[in-house]
């Protein structure tokens, strides 16, 4: 039976995050959260794989206690159990330390054959987590997976979507896969799973619960990168706004200007 892990992340709605002009800090308070959309494609790929080849799907995330809602949302789509890594010392982590924490926590549930991840998160958007997880899992990796052809005999055959074509690859298990959404559009929860997800028990690990966890490798101390400064982007001076009173005359004026410029 395949043991399948899906890594998910709860993110703030980036459209609603604002920067406090006084302090230069990001204002996240009161900003709604959502499950990173690309992680739902990863979940779909995992559920399809389970349906076709058999197995058990475990979800894992790291975040504050409220990230539990993301795990329940994913359990309602498909998933047999879920792990939440939560605790102050994990905070402020970059991908180097987050990948360490996730791998150590998942090892509490044994070894996984397949690990699915979204290509990137909409908030951090580094796209680095998957490769770094794969390295720490000592797994092969198939990034930008377009379709899964077969899983058998300790191997997975899949098609990658590259810039200019499709590459078929064959990888040994354990294997970490990031998915393209083309063939892995997220499905809606089914009623039974949805009801179950409300009551499902979620395993929560703090820094004290994970065997062999090196506290120097988690959170800020374990991070390779820091963000010493954020600032609003410097904007160029606004262009010429055409305001002649109506859409029709604005469009007319624009066509004249473009004709003068030789653009049309």
């Amino acid at each position: 039976m395949l043991k399948i892990l899906v890594c998910v992340k709860q993110i703030p709605d980036v459209d609603l995050v604002k920067m406090d002009p006084e302090t230069g800090n990001l204002v996240r308070a009161g900003v709604p959260t959502l499950t990173n959309p690309l992680d739902l494609n990863a979940l779909e790929a995992a559920v399809q794989t389970k349906e076709k080849y058999g197995g058990e799907v475990t979800l894992i995330t790291m975040g504050p206690p409220m990230a539990e809602s993301t795990l329940r949302e994913c359990l309602a789509v498909g998933g047999d159990d879920a792990i939440l890594i939560s605790g102050r010392p994990f905070g402020g982590a970059d991908t180097l330390s987050t990948s360490y924490s996730i791998v150590k926590a998942s090892e509490m549930k044994g070894k996984f054959d397949l690990i699915f991840c979204g290509k990137e998160s909409l908030d951090g958007a580094t796209g680095q987590m998957a490769s770094q997880l794969a390295e720490r899992f000592d797994a092969s990796q198939i990034s930008c997976c377009y379709s899964i052809e077969n899983v058998a005999d300790g191997k997975i055959r899949a098609v990658r979507a590259l810039e200019d074509g499709k590459e078929t690859v064959e990888a040994t298990l354990p294997c970490l896969i990031t998915v393209e959404k083309d063939n892995f559009y997220g499905r809606l929860p089914n009623l039974e799973a949805y009801l179950g997800s409300k009551k499902a028990e979620i395993t929560t690990y703090t820094e004290n619960d994970i065997d062999g966890l090196d506290l120097n490798k988690i959170g800020v101390p374990g991070s390779g990168t820091i963000v010493p400064k954020i600032y609003p982007p410097e904007l160029p001076e606004p262009g010429q706004i055409i305001n002649t009173g109506s859409a029709k005359s604005d469009a007319q004026r624009l066509v004249e200007l473009l004709a003068e410029k030789g653009s049309i």
Partner: peptide, 23 residues
């Protein structure tokens, strides 16, 4: 930061236990 560049660079960064940035 091509598809393959983004595939392997973060991986050797972990092997070297160092920080990696993107974009």
């Amino acid at each position: 930061g091509t598809i393959n560049g983004r595939d392997f660079a973060p991986r050797f960064a972990v092997q070297l236990d160092t920080g990696c940035t993107s974009d």
